[in-house]
Design a protein around this nucleic acid. Structure first.
Lengths: 157, 157
DNA sequence: CCAATGTTCATGCAAACGCATCGACTTTGG
DNA sequence: CCAAAGTCGATGCGTTTGCATGAACATTGG
């Protein structure tokens, strides 16, 4: 009479539906942001890299560590950093603690770019996310998404 | 003494933090799915197209309507459908009601592919989403994400 | 101590992407 | 009714991406 808890099909469906809702909400918002030209003159992925660096102590990170946070293959990130360096937004230096490593540092111009695009980004978020959910719902959404993401660290490969 | 409600900076921050949490949770999970080779032999975006078609009546949709649901530029979707047709997963036909339109139809092979990949996808979701949140949290997450997405329809450009 | 293994980043290359644009068709307004 | 404007999908083209691989360095185990 009681269904087995770990193989409960309705629970699998529930998880799938929740993921699908998350995925579609994200797509819908990214489309909105793109329509607002939020990212110009850089791309979303480039902004993600600049943003990630801006939150690091000393605004710097190993390429490998950056790659753990950004959804991009290692070669793609390597070339993107190359382009960002050519644009003067980041600098690369060898890692003195590990001869294999490359440290990526946000330049002042890169930090300024992150702030400029970040402000536009925030304006769009206020516009498209703000009216959709009240404060309590926003806090709940943030809490559940953080919980979902952080739980990944304790789930084996 | 009372801050203006529409320009409340803490609310803008809250919305930004919620969006960031959503974005990062999605990235973390997509990375997990990729590591499991969930999508093979098609890509996530291709699966998204097959999945979207599979949920439509008659498993068919105008290219333009597909493009509204998938996060992809119109030319990219056009070429992807071209490739999917070459692979035998979809078929294209002219729209008899509108001479400009192209209707994309999921073939039997395409539906089978969607089911096969969908099952792997569901397995991964159960593995990575299931343990992270309980039933109540899953329902709440789904509700908030749906609300966020659906609210976009009533927010002007 | 050093040979074997693992890790980190860069590069060659083909595939896929977005932007700009075009031709074909539809809709609108006088 | 037709000219003007709008919509839909395809294609040329430069850019970006991922996969496979290589070179340099670090770590491990005997």
């Amino acid at each position: 009479m009681t269904p087995p808890p770990s193989a409960d099909p309705s629970r699998a469906e529930l998880a799938a539906e929740s993921w699908e809702a998350l995925f579609r909400a994200q797509s819908a918002l990214l489309r909105r942001f793109a329509a607002d030209d939020v990212w110009d003159p850089i791309s979303l992925r480039e902004y993600d890299v600049l943003f990630t660096l801006s939150r690091r102590p000393d605004r710097r990170a190993r390429l490998r560590d950056l790659n753990r946070e950004v959804l991009l293959s290692q070669p793609s990130l390597s070339r993107m950093v190359e382009r960002l360096e050519a644009a003067g937004l980041v600098a690369r230096e060898p890692d003195r603690a590990d001869g294999r490593g490359t440290v990526v540092v946000l330049t002042e111009a890169g930090a300024a770019m992150q702030r400029t695009v970040g402000r536009r980004h925030t304006t769009s978020i206020r516009r498209y996310v703000g009216p959709a959910l009240d404060d309590e719902e926003l806090r709940t959404l943030r809490r559940l998404c953080d919980k979902l993401r952080l739980a990944q660290e304790s789930i084996p490969d």
